[in-house]
């Protein structure tokens, strides 16, 4: 579900953007919370009742020792345990590409969260397209440094792919934004094809 130390390869910027979408004082779950950085930001800046699920037990133990509410669990199988509308926000940050059943996970998130925030690396980015086109090899970037055979990321998608999935599961896109390589937000007015080409990261705020 989760790449080890995922936040060391992710800009803190996209976490701040996610935190920005979360209303203060709400009930939040971060699925695949990694080292707990987003939970910490949420606790510091949004005063939310936040908890996390993380696949790696070592990661969980570190989070709890730092005072974060985290349990060991698997996004693919364990979200079914939660009741409908359990959370105001269900967050899946840099994790959907590592799940076995992304569609199922997204549907579960939409069931347990009134609103869902998903962020993921955009596989439609021009660097990635270029690597396949020119080198004929699976892409490796600073954000996605793994070899094809040992990557935890097994279900990559582009921004357009993700929008199609949202359509399939009847999720409404309330907000979406794409970030460039420096974590800077692309202009809202940029056309979709350009966002899909230039965006390295994407963040979506969804509702049912």
């Amino acid at each position: 579900m989760d790449a080890p130390n995922k936040h060391t390869t992710t800009s803190r910027v996209d976490l701040l953007l996610i935190a920005d979408m979360v209303d203060p004082g709400t009930r939040v779950i971060d699925v695949g919370c990694g080292d707990g950085m987003l939970l910490e930001i949420l606790a510091e800046t949004r005063d939310v009742d936040a908890r996390g699920i993380e696949l790696s037990q070592a990661g969980v133990n570190q989070c709890v020792a730092r005072g974060l509410s985290v349990i060991q669990g698997d996004a693919d199988s364990d979200l079914v345990n939660y009741p409908d509308d359990a959370f105001d926000f269900a967050i899946l940050s840099q994790t959907i590409q590592a799940t076995h059943r992304p569609r199922h996970v997204l549907e579960e998130l939409l069931r347990i969260g009134k609103r869902v925030i998903v962020s993921f690396p955009n596989f439609g980015n021009w660097r990635i397209r270029g690597q396949i086109l020119l080198r004929g090899r699976m892409p490796e970037t600073s954000n996605l440094p793994h070899k094809w055979y040992d990557t935890p990321n097994i279900h990559f998608c582009t921004i357009k792919d993700f929008l199609a999935l949202c359509d399939d599961v009847d999720a409404k896109v309330e907000r979406s934004l794409a970030l460039n390589a420096h974590g800077k937000r692309l202009s809202f007015s940029a056309p979709l094809f350009l966002q899909n080409l230039i965006g390295e990261q994407a963040v979506f705020l969804l509702t049912r």
């Binding site: 037990q57 939660y82 959370f87």
Partner: peptide
């Protein structure tokens, strides 16, 4: 949906 931490 209780607030729970779990450490093994």
């Amino acid at each position: 949906a209780a607030n729970v931490s779990f450490v093994e």
